[in-house]
């Protein structure tokens, strides 16, 4: 059985980047960017998440099968949110239904 062992230096490096991103996201939140505050906050959170998944959770070095399972969780979450919003974002487009 071959196990890929990530060197400690990589872990420390990823940790440092995560810390910088945490500081950045808090700092940026104090600047008013209108609707882009949400975008930026979620963008930074996503980068952090990808770093954790790829390095701490070793998805960089797992089989394709495992990657499919990782993707499945994300895709299904996207289905849940997208098709729910499909309702909420179109409320009030027609004369009958009221906006929420």
């Amino acid at each position: 059985m071959t196990v890929h062992i990530t060197p400690r230096r990589t872990y420390y490096l990823v940790f440092a980047v995560l810390m910088i991103l945490t500081a950045t996201t808090t700092g940026v939140a104090f600047i008013d960017m209108g609707p882009f505050n949400v975008v930026v906050a979620l963008f930074i959170a996503s980068i952090k998440a990808v770093l954790v998944v790829l390095f701490f959770m070793h998805v960089l070095h797992v089989t394709n099968l495992t990657k499919v399972f990782v993707a499945a969780g994300i895709v299904w979450l996207a289905i849940l949110i997208a098709l729910t919003l499909n309702d909420y974002l179109t409320r009030g487009w027609d004369p009958i239904s009221r906006p929420f």
């Binding site: 996201t25 808090t26 939140a29 104090f30 600047i31 008013d32 960017m33 505050n37 949400v38 906050a41 979620l42 930074i44 959170a45 952090k48 998440a49 954790v52 998944v53 701490f56 959770m57």
Partner: peptide, 22 residues
């Protein structure tokens, strides 16, 4: 454990950081 960390990475901006500049 990393997964629980991941959830927090999203909870933090969504719950704490959304209204700071208003």
């Amino acid at each position: 454990w990393h997964f629980v960390d991941l959830v927090w990475i999203f909870l933090f901006p969504l719950l704490y950081l959304i209204g700071l500049h208003l």
